[in-house]
Amino acid sequence: MNFAMALDYQSCIDCKACEVACKEENGVQLGADKQRIWVSQSEKSIFGEPFVALHPSQCNHCQDAPCVDVCPTGSSYFALGGIVMTNKDTCILCKGCMEACPYDARFVDDTHVAVDKCTFCYDTRIVNGEMTTACQATCPTKVRLFGDLDDEEGELIQMLNKRKFYVLKEDEGTVPKLFYMLPEHDKNYAMNSVDEGTNIYTWDEFKPIIEMAKAKRKPQWQAMQE
């Protein structure tokens, strides 16, 4: 199993259902700066007309995650299926992982005095065998598709085989596993919502990158913990 998520971000309406569902599901600390997931907005003006692109985001559960490497106590680790987790009991709040993360996906949870981040609902759903995350389930326009990259028959791989996508900050070399699906039918929107210099991939092209990073990191994956 190798968990990942595709985001058909063109369907996002910024309703923030995912943010609230996440907080309710996982008991995330209240506060606007305490977000496991979020929707980022980029706003610009094209010939005087406004243009806004929305990118729902969260921890990329990088296949080659730098946050795991910098953690001095082993608090940041790979769980089942390569999900990047934090152990709140062993976190000493050195915040090295927060520095290391290129996606700003981590924050301090003051109620636990530890770093917190997205877990793909590992504790509340995956350990119970559920294959949807709270953010996916609640989404009115179904932006997210959570799945297993090792399941060739699965919906996620089928979608990745069908459509092109990109990842965020590829240059960081972290091999992120949030796949942003390129809008297929609106070239204008696609062009304006993707940063210049971002590589567009097919699954055939990206799969070897994933496989290589997975081979490197798989030995560190921990088995399911109750």
Binding site: C15, A17, V20, A21, A137, T138, C139, P140, K142
Partner: peptide, 12 residues
Amino acid sequence: KNMLCARGDAGI
């Protein structure tokens, strides 16, 4: 269909 919005999620 199959959704709850932010307000629905915050019903608690």
